[in-house]
Amino acid sequence: MTPSQAGAPPPRARPGRTPSTSREQISHVALELFMQRGFDGTTVDDIARAAAIGRRTFFRYFSSKNDVPWGDFDSLLERMRAHLASLPDTMPLMEQLRRSVMEFNRVGKVESQYHRRRMELLLNVPTLVAHSTLRYRAWREVIADHVARRLNVPSADLIPQTIAWTCLGACLAAYEQWLADRQRSLPDLLDEALLMIDVRIDAEGMQTPRGTQV
């Protein structure tokens, strides 16, 4: 962000502009502002004005400014949970997780430009890094719950929690590589990182030989 950008007034909605009426539209407007003025330099009023909506409308879609970069994260989590549940139990556990995490991170061509901006904010803005703790916990719960069901153990047990944390770490490492090098493909990086997790756990919680199905 340049000094001139930091001092610039927030963009106003163009006269006659159709108000943003979806979570996605509002988040796109907000992301543009965040990149121009910085996250901390943008207010909810700035976002509402640029999106041609009122504050009340903004808060119908987002609980706070901190939630904006996450988009419709809760719906994505439910989709990942449903995707995991749809996979056959004959499939190895880690393959189930890899496929579902890949699907969770799949974005369309238009959305991909905004996705990069989201992750730059979420991984680098101190305010959002702290806020991310709750979101990452919810993400890990989806993974841990599925692992627990497959192994018939409580989701709070060590194995489900360890696998959930490991999957999250692999994804964050892939995202950092993607943000550092625009030539790299996010799906390829995620796939490579997740394939490194070569854990095979049997129903009694013991590690079994490589390639063994759970």
Rank of each mutant, 00 (worst) to 15 (best):
M1D: 01
M1K: 01
P3W: 14
P11T: 03
R12D: 00
P15N: 05
S20P: 05
S22C: 12
I26M: 09
L31E: 04
E32L: 13
R37N: 13
T42F: 15
A51G: 06
I53D: 04
R55Q: 13
F59Q: 03
F62G: 07
N66Y: 00
P69V: 02
W70H: 08
D72V: 03
M80T: 06
M80P: 01
H83I: 14
L84V: 06
L84K: 04
P88R: 14
P92G: 13
E95R: 10
R99D: 14
S100N: 08
E103R: 13
V107T: 14
K109C: 01
H115F: 13
R117N: 05
M119D: 00
P126K: 13
V129I: 11
T133N: 07
R140K: 15
E141K: 10
A144R: 08
H146T: 09
Q161R: 13
I163P: 02
A164F: 02
W165R: 07
T166P: 02
C167K: 06
A170C: 13
C171L: 07
A174N: 03
D181P: 02
R182W: 05
Q183L: 07
Q183F: 02
P187I: 09
D191K: 15
D191W: 01
L194A: 08
M196G: 14
R200L: 08
D202P: 09
A203Y: 06
E204S: 06
E204G: 04
R210Y: 03
R210M: 08
G211S: 10
Q213G: 04
Q213T: 11
